[in-house]
Write a protein that binds this DNA or RNA. Sequence first.
RNA 1: GGCGACGUGGCCAAGCGGUAAGGCAGGGGCCUGCAAAGCCCUCACCCCCAGUUCGAAUCUGGGCGUCGCCUCCA
Length: 492
Amino acid sequence: MIKIYNTQTRNKVDFEAIDRGKVGMYVCGPTVYNYIHIGNARTFISFDIIRRYLTWRGFKVTFVQNVTDVDDKIIKKAHEENRSAAEVAAEYTEAFIADMRAAGVLDPDIRPKATEEIPEMIDLVSQLIEGGHAYEVEGDVYFAVRSFPEYGKLSGRKIDEMESGHRDLRASGLEDRKRDPLDFAVWKAAKPGEPSWESPWGAGRPGWHIECSAMSRKYLGLPFDIHGGGADLVFPHHENEVAQSEAACGCTFANYWIHGGMLQINSEKMSKSLGNFLLLRDVLETTQPEVLRMLMLQTHYRSPLDFSDERLVESEAALSRLANTVKNLEWLENNAADIPSSLDIRALIEQTQTARNEFIVVMDDDFNTAGALGVVFAFVGEVNAALADKTLSLSDVPAVYQVRSVLVELMGVFGISLEGDQAEAEYPREVVALANELAGYPGANEAQAVAMLLDCREQARKNKEWALADKVRDGLAALDLVIEDTPQGPRI
RNA sequence: GGCGACGUGGCCAAGCGGUAAGGCAGGGGCCUGCAAAGCCCUCACCCCCAGUUCGAAUCUGGGCGUCGCCUCCA
């Protein structure tokens, strides 16, 4: 049974899907007025992993993520750059999709754009007005917070306390138009030069919160299973979504609310105003997406995560530990004929199954990726210990395959691919010349050249010709090919 | 001011009542011609003080500290 920490109830609860075996999931996407930053990426990668895990556990997941492509910030940016809001939105929508793919985040099943769902939003606003939950003032429509007694239930606030404790509710100048200072816009009358759509209240555009209410309702129906987003969206965005959606339909909006913790840089909040934010695309410029994921996996998705170059380096080292073991296993499979067989691998198989089961237990507990990673690494340690024992060798190729495939499978759930067996294609051309020089024959192709070089070195070592042996090793190293002498033989 | 989260080894981090996973870094050893990779061993008074309990990192109260939300924010 999968347990999920539900923001609304503030505790971990058993996950029960509305439709057995299916999960409807909505995660708030970005407002496309800039390239997404590393904090956005943290949230989206977290939900990518949750989605992958649920899928792996057998659920048919319908994953919906919107793009907010009409909004104050987009309009502002457009004005600054003297072009249309649509242009700005289109550019950054495209960039967002590209960045997500570069980060290894799976495409959502449905990616609605706010500007393409306006009729649904107008419908929803109309419903709210009819139901007495919203009112129009000169082309603006506001949600009446007082009409929804449960307002505040998601974020754990009480209306009265909010009003008395609020800093400067009357500062914006618009407050006199509202019946209550806490009321928020669900439809905004168009101002000159702004994108707008016709509506019963005149030309205007939707408020931010109504967009997600309308899109999630349209594509998933109400109620749906999981609504996610960054923790900073709990209030007011998600609170308002709940109010709108539930006031309109009279039913529950989403059963489980999942919120991802914030990413910080050097223990400081990353924000535009502080100017310390990193763009995802800039990070990916110098960092493998798997390394970034590895870093994020090591912290629980709800905890704050401190991002730093040091952690990136650590994560890379950790990842290569896993990759190395997989590479060794792969090599063993491909060279099984040369391996003296005496290993009773049953223990390893048992450990493999145990590790896989344990992985599930840990992940079922609110997607504890850090704990699950611990399981994987502990298992890798066991595998390495077996491989390091020279009295053992791997006689049972299917068993080795099983060990490796489980390793690959489990990390695959995290979106990290450990299969790098395009080695043949990756050998640089220079190895041919090197083989010709050192082994006296270029070989038929790169792979053969490498094989000859390894063989040449082994011969040299046998004859204690260390100079030649090291020449081969250094020559390969210069081409970024590192020889590893395993107990079962050398490999690249 | 209101609401909330967190404080575990040098760094990161899991843990949710039975005497501390894992990663990175460090020390010692093994393997190796030397390396690399790997293996073995080693490195924690769980922020402080009280309390509950046979037993607490884990529960309760208090203190100190860090951070987040309350305004656009993933």
